[in-house]
Design a protein around this nucleic acid. Sequence first.
DNA 1: CATACGTCCTGCCAGC
DNA 2: TGCTGGCAGGACGTAT
Length: 326
Amino acid sequence: MPELPEAETIARRLDEVLSGRIVADVTVLREDVVAGPARRFARAIAAKQIQSVARRGKNVVLLLCDQSRVVINLGMTGRLFACAGGSDSFRDTPSAPGAPDGFEAPQGAKASISGHAAVLFGLDSGEQLVYDDTRRFGRLAIMPPADWSRWSRSLGPEPLSPSFTAKRLHRALAKSRSPVRSLLLDQKKIAGVGNIYAIEALWEAEVHPRLPGRALIPQDVTKLHRSLRRVLRNAIQARGTTLRDYRTAEGAMGGFGPALRAYGRAGQPCRRCARKIRRVVFSGRSAFFCPGCQGSGADLRGVHPMAVRAGNELESRNRTPGAALL
DNA sequence: CATACGTCCTGCCAGC
DNA sequence: TGCTGGCAGGACGTAT
C-alpha cells in the first residue's frame, strides 16, 4: 500500500534518474489505468522533457517541460521503476489478460517487468520507465497547469510541511463524529496518510482508532500531530514499508516493517505495555490498537456502547493481513 | 452537508 | 491435490 513514505522514496529516486530525460514514446498496455483516452495521454507526454519528479500526497508527480504534470497514483499494487533493457524484449512477451505472466527476470536484475506492466515510457537514454500494477487500482493522469493546481488544492496539507500544524490537525478532526482513523485517511483533510501510518501514529499517540474526531482532547491532538510526523519521517528514512507488493524504484523492499508497532501485530504483545494488540474492522478496514494504552474501546468518549460492541465482534484472532511477510 | 457503504481488481491462503 | 470463496484496500461513486 504505497502511502506518503513509499511515494516519497520512489519520487526521490526517479528524480535522480529521470530529470532531464526526454520521453521518446509512451505505450499504454492497460488502458484502464490511464485517465481519459490512452492516445490523448500518450500524445500529451511524448517528446517532452522531464524536468523533475516530486510527490503530492501518495502520488508521484512528473513535471514536464511544458509545466504539465503526469500524476501517478500507485493504488494498492502500483510500481514504478526504470528498466535498463530496451522495450523490444518486453514486447516479445505476451501480456494479454489471462495469459501467463511475463518472463522471469534474470538473476540480479534490479527490477523485473511482469505481465502486469501497464504503461511504458521509452526514454531518450534507451532506458524505459515502467508502470506496473497487478490490481490496476492505480491511475495515471496528465494534468495541464490549471488542472494540476485545482487538483492539488483539492487535497489536504502535506503532513510534513511546516504549514501542517497541530492547530490544522485539530481543525481537520474537531467537528467530526467519524472515527479518527477514518479522518486521517481522508486525503482532503491530510494528504498522504494511509491505513498503515494512521494506525502507527495512533498507537504512538496512545489514541484509540475509533475515537470520534471531535472527542480528542487537545493533548491527544498535540501528541497525534507529533507522532504522525515522526512515523512518516522514520518510514521515509527506512524507504517505506513492504507488506507484500511495494518496491522502491530500484526494486528493493522497504525497511520499515520491523518498526511497525501495531499494524499487522494482532495477538502480539504491545511494545509499551505488553498487552495483546487487537484487530477490529470498521469502515471496511482493519484497525490495530493496544487495549491497554489506547483504551479498550469500552471507555471511548462519545461512542455509543452498541457501536463499540459491534466493532469488537468483528475481531479476528489469527488472521492478520500481511503478517507473514513482516 | 456529513457519513456510510459498495465497487473496482488480482493474488493469496484457509478450508474442504 | 485442486478448487473455491473470502479477504486485502485507495479512491471514487452512490445512497442514506
